[in-house]
Simulated scan of single mutants.
Amino acid sequence: MLISGEKMDYVNINNLEIFANHGVFPEENFLGQKFLVSAKMGVDIRKAGLSDDLNNTLNYGEICQYITDFMKNNTFKLIETVVERLAEKMLLNFELLKSIELTIKKPWAPIGLPLETASITIKRSWHRAFIALGSNMGDSKAYLDNGLKSLNCDKIKVLKTSEYMVTKAYGYTDQPDFLNACTMVDTLLTPHELLDRLHEIEKEAHRERIIRWGPRTLDLDIIFYDKLIFEDDELVIPHIDMENRDFVLFPMKEIAPNFRHPILNKTMTQLSEQLSDR
């Protein structure tokens, strides 16, 4: 996982030439054209530099072949789609790859005007997120277990989960105790895509939003996403008031004691100790 502010090394490929069949016009799909692919790939190569072992870095010959095969074996109308799908596939298939800046150029773009290239560049990477889980209806342990299983997919890797803890209800207190936990994940999803996925998992667990802070089969909340500070009508990161919620802080302290709140500038250990003192 690429930590914000951490120095990253790069393996670069510049203008790999590939003849493939992508484009809006039928002749582009049928006749094909030349594409130039460049990739700036974030990877920690210090171990490779010290060991002189190819297994500790990205094999750029293998990378070039992978890109070529992907470009030749698929057909898309938009190079926006090509570059998005290729970046995702590379991040999923090369374990050492942490981030990628990918550019695809069309030197023969059919626009009828003098042009060197038309191109698309995107930057994509793995992101570290922390998610809180809670349940106080039915078999709460089963709901948390199944929620974690549903979370763990190709674009979300569950890395570490706290012990489950029983806590009193927060806000609306006239309801059964909760079973709570926090989990640490790496994800390729954006914050809103991750939120949508959490809502899908809650829906699978028959979550109903009737009373604010009311009983629920499964509640999933994004607590942190990298060191992001973000707010809109649907999502607030870091999660509002998490520093006053023992059912978030104590599980967070268990799995990431030294993770620092990007606004409060205190670690999970420091925040949990503050809460305990109160």
Results as ranks from 00 to 15, higher is better:
residue 50 L to Q: 13
residue 27 E to Y: 15
residue 168 K to W: 12
residue 169 A to W: 11
residue 32 G to N: 01
residue 276 S to K: 14
residue 45 I to M: 11
residue 137 M to S: 07
residue 35 F to D: 02
residue 98 K to T: 01
residue 198 L to Q: 10
residue 36 L to H: 11
residue 278 R to E: 10
residue 122 I to R: 11
residue 110 P to D: 12
residue 139 D to R: 11
residue 3 I to Q: 09
residue 25 F to V: 07
residue 186 D to S: 04
residue 150 S to N: 11
residue 34 K to Y: 14
residue 224 F to Q: 06
residue 45 I to G: 05
residue 187 T to I: 11
residue 48 A to F: 09
residue 54 L to D: 10
residue 19 F to W: 11
residue 227 K to H: 15
residue 155 K to C: 11
residue 172 Y to P: 09
residue 207 R to E: 09
residue 1 M to P: 14
residue 175 Q to P: 10
residue 269 T to C: 09
residue 223 I to F: 03
residue 157 K to L: 14
residue 99 S to K: 14
residue 147 G to S: 07
residue 149 K to S: 05
residue 94 F to W: 14
residue 268 M to N: 15
residue 131 I to F: 06
residue 100 I to S: 06
residue 257 P to V: 03
residue 253 K to I: 05
residue 210 I to C: 00
residue 88 E to P: 14
residue 83 V to P: 13
residue 18 I to Y: 13
residue 80 E to D: 14
residue 9 D to R: 01
residue 169 A to E: 02
residue 107 P to R: 01
residue 85 R to T: 01
residue 192 H to W: 05
residue 4 S to P: 15
residue 94 F to N: 08
residue 249 L to V: 11
residue 32 G to F: 06
residue 3 I to Y: 13
residue 207 R to Q: 02
residue 105 K to P: 11
residue 184 M to I: 06
residue 256 A to V: 03
residue 228 L to D: 11
residue 215 P to K: 05
residue 221 D to Y: 04
residue 3 I to A: 04
residue 218 L to A: 04
residue 25 F to G: 08
residue 213 W to C: 12
residue 195 L to W: 14
residue 234 E to A: 10
residue 159 L to C: 15
residue 192 H to I: 08
residue 63 I to A: 01
residue 207 R to P: 09
residue 221 D to H: 01
residue 39 A to H: 03
residue 11 V to T: 04
residue 52 D to T: 07
residue 253 K to L: 02
residue 116 E to K: 09
residue 44 D to N: 03
residue 42 G to R: 06
residue 109 A to L: 06
residue 6 E to P: 02
residue 91 L to E: 03
residue 154 D to K: 12
residue 67 I to H: 15
residue 178 F to C: 12
residue 1 M to V: 04
residue 227 K to Q: 07
residue 173 T to M: 03
residue 190 T to E: 09
